Amino acid sequence: MKPVFVRAALCAAFLLPVAAQAHKMWMLPSATVISGDEAWVTVDAAVSNDLYYPDHFPAKLDQLVITAPDGSTAKPENASTGKYRSTFDLAVPQKGTYRLALVNQGMFASYEVDGQKKRWRGSPAEFKGAIPAGAKNVEVSEMASRVETFVTQGSPSDGALKPTGKGLELVPVTQPNDLMAGEKATFQLLLDGKPAPDLKVVAINGATRYRNAQDEMDTTTDKDGKFSFTWPAAGMYWVNASTEDGHTAAKEAKRRRLAYTATLEVLPQ
């Protein structure tokens, strides 16, 4: 078998965060900066036409990963999925910054066996051995996306912000819960743990349902994968980047499509 990895039709679970798509995936916390020993936040997660207005379908919570300030994994409570959105509560007893992430990764394949077309879908770990040895016209696409937001209890910290070294990730240079209107904020994008240069990054202030245009800003990462925005106004901003990569070896050509999205709150001066 000689697999050929190609760009396939992109399913909503992985690539709706891409800025060019009409639908956008997001998580929206009820607050991003809080205080108090018994503090909680409620988070909505959805895919929608208008930012932060659930009108299409809910995000799946089975790939939700919440990292507490000390690096441990926190558990959501009261999780539920409705017609248009998913929601969950999160207790935030630790002082510092929490990272909330929906991490999706999968592979899609089509191939022929004895003249009959077959399809396969699963995780990268399941792919080995999934396609019959005699299969022909094998087409496979690997896709990965990360949708994040951040919540800080008391003083900010960086214990939860360490990159995993997998896929497209954001490393804050400016603390993500210390953003102010009129001020410049800088971040870094990594691809598999290395700086990701020359990527287009888009930022859109939410509540697009009540505007005639999205009024998006865009910039490009530098050689170190860094980019900056100066926020024109307060609000919840949807920040997105995507890329493709691949390689050709003796027996296969591999292509990945990756996307990163964050919801960041910008506060008034």
Rank of each mutant, 00 (worst) to 15 (best):
F229V: 02
T219N: 08
T221C: 08
T220P: 03
S242Y: 09
F227N: 06
A250W: 01
G225A: 14
F229C: 03
W231F: 15
D222W: 10
L258K: 11
D224E: 15
A233Q: 15
D245P: 04
K251E: 09
A249Y: 03
T221K: 02
D218A: 13
A233C: 10
T219P: 06
T220M: 04
Y237P: 04
G235R: 07
V239S: 04
Y237D: 03
K251I: 06
M236R: 07
P232W: 02
T219Q: 09
V239N: 05
D224Q: 14
W231E: 15
R256L: 10
T230M: 08
S242M: 05
Y237L: 12
D218G: 09
T230E: 12
M236H: 10
R256S: 11
D245F: 11
G225R: 12
V239D: 07
D224M: 08
W231D: 15
D224W: 03
G246N: 07
N240Y: 00
A233S: 15
Y237T: 06
E252Y: 11
A250I: 07
K223E: 15
G235S: 08
T219H: 09
W238R: 10
G225E: 13
L258S: 02
W231H: 14
M236G: 13
G246S: 07
R255K: 09
N240C: 05
N240K: 00
W238T: 13
A253K: 11
M236D: 15
T219S: 07
A253H: 05
E244L: 03
K254A: 09
T221Y: 04
D222T: 06
N240F: 01
L258H: 04
W231T: 15
